[in-house]
Design a protein around this nucleic acid. Structure first.
Length: 419
RNA sequence: GGCAGGUUGCCCGAGCGGCCAAUGGGAGCUGACUGUAAAUCAGCCGGCAAUGCCUUCGCAGGUUCGAAUCCUGCACCUGCCA
């Protein structure tokens, strides 16, 4: 007998809260359970936090259960209340566009084959024609406002203000769970721990409306060693869309994982067996300098999101740009590929270095570029440049390529081409 | 509705007529050490055609040789009283 999926999830550090653990365990053991996880279109792409939910959904599917992946065509029009304050409402067109993009992203992480094939659903399908009177009578009646006010997000927002629109969000998400229970017998909703309140509200609604007992399971917030949220790359969220964050940049974010966290991330974000992860942990502890765990993590997660070809490209680019090898010794094809991964821009011969640093995106302004130079953190072809007036001309590789670097980790390429 | 106070750079928070692009802390960036890790120490941390110039201290106007600092109006927030 293999490990119970719930034990596996717990061992991987993927369980923050759940409803009655024993009942959930028994139901999961009894046979295929239909479960759902939802994604609201708040951006054109999903990000690392959503990835964790999708991977968790896949783990459950691999254990024989049936996933429903919900895209929030209606909830995305309303907006989940956040501590930071009222959201800006997006237009219906924008939300519809994002729903389409997110739908195609989620399809990559679950299987649509077999007895427990996944299904993608859109909550707009069952909310767009609901009329207000029915909604208030059938759904609203089950929500005591005094209980709603006790929720932490709502309480904090009472200080700064919250619209009726956002206050009502929880009713919509709860209605989704109820609807999916009625349509497909859905008996488990998963999500991030920040969704716990919304998820349990749905459990409660189903209990009141149908007298049925369904389950909820949440994953913990993924943090860095300092306790802050993990999932920011330089300049923004860790997007899954390669147009919004290059596979190289995605790979780099993972390979820079902290020692004290990398093993946790391996358990949470990869499908490696726990015994293998233990072996990697032991090996890393013995020879931390080799960064075995980080390399494996970056390769595994990048493969899941962008595919094996992009892993190879990112690894080769990283090896070329971070390796000990002399840049002059790299074949042009390797160097060009590496710089393309890192971000390659075209500039005129004789372009000032500071301008090239700005154009390449390594710094935000010329002032920042000059600062990088005076800090001793600007490099051209791995040679530190201390002259703030330096220009790019003679010293190129393969007749025109230049490797620009800021500090230890930020690399980009420039190609000198006569205009 | 009345009275009092607040709104400063990514965040917190000093400044209360010129010495203010604006103290300090956090975040961030760079350097040294190292392993594309952590910790520690040091520097940087609005922009530009850069020994100067431009834009910034809620918004709009005004006083003044000169304003983040004073005055008027507006918006939002907080506290006290009804």
């Amino acid at each position: 007998m293999t490990t119970h999926v719930l034990d596996d999830l717990e061992a991987r550090g993927l369980v923050a809260h759940s409803t009655d653990r024993d009942a959930l365990r028994a139901d999961l053991s009894a046979g295929p359970v239909t479960y759902y996880v939802g994604f609201d279109p708040t951006a054109p792409s999903l990000h690392m936090g959503n990835l964790l939910q999708l991977l968790t959904a896949r783990r459950l599917q691999l254990a024989g259960h049936k996933p429903l992946i919900l895209v929030g065509g209606s909830t995305g029009l309303i907006g989940d209340p956040r501590d930071v304050g009222e959201r800006t409402m997006n237009s219906r067109e924008t939300v519809a566009d994002w729903v389409g993009r997110i739908r195609s992203q989620v399809e990559q992480y679950v299987s649509f084959e077999g007895d427990n094939a996944a299904r993608v659903v859109n909550n707009l399908d069952w909310t767009k024609d609901v009329n207000v009177i029915d909604f208030l009578r059938d759904i609203g009646k089950h929500f005591p406002v005094n209980r709603m006010l006790d929720r932490q997000v709502v309480a904090s927002r009472l200080e700064t203000g919250i619209s009726y629109t956002e206050f009502s969000y929880v009713l919509l998400q709860s209605m989704d769970y109820l609807e999916l229970y009625r349509r497909y017998g859905t008996a488990l909703q998963t999500g991030g721990s920040d969704q716990w309140g919304n998820i349990t509200a749905g459990v409660e609604l189903i209990r009141r409306a149908e007298g049925a007992k369904v389950h909820a399971l949440s994953t913990p917030l993924i943090t860095k060693a300092d306790g802050t949220k993990f999932g920011k790359s330089t300049g923004g969220a860790l997007w899954l869309d390669p147009e919004m964050l290059s596979p190289y940049a995605f790979y780099q974010t993972w390979i820079q994982a902290e020692d004290s966290k990398v093993i946790e991330y391996l358990r949470q974000f990869t499908f490696l067996e726990l015994e293998e992860i233990e072996a990697i942990a032991a090996e890393s502890a013995e020879r931390p300098g080799l960064r075995i765990a980080q390399r494996r993590l970056a390769a595994e997660v990048t493969a899941l999101v962008h595919g094996q070809d992009e892993v190879r490209a990112a690894e080769q680019a990283s090896a070329a740009l971070f390796g000990r090898a002399e840049l002059e010794d790299l074949p042009e094809s390797t160097l060009r590929a590496a710089l393309t991964e890192a971000g390659l821009v075209t500039v005129d011969p004789g372009t000032p270095l500071v301008d090239a640093l700005v154009v390449s995106g390594l710094v935000d302004s010329k002032s920042a570029a000059r600062r990088a130079v005076s800090d001793g953190g600007a490099y051209v072809n791995n040679v530190r440049v201390e002259d703030p007036d330096a220009v790019l001309d003679g010293h190129t590789l393969h007749g025109g390529l230049v490797v620009l670097r800021k500090g230890k980790k930020s690399v980009a390429g420039a190609e000198l081409v006569k205009a």
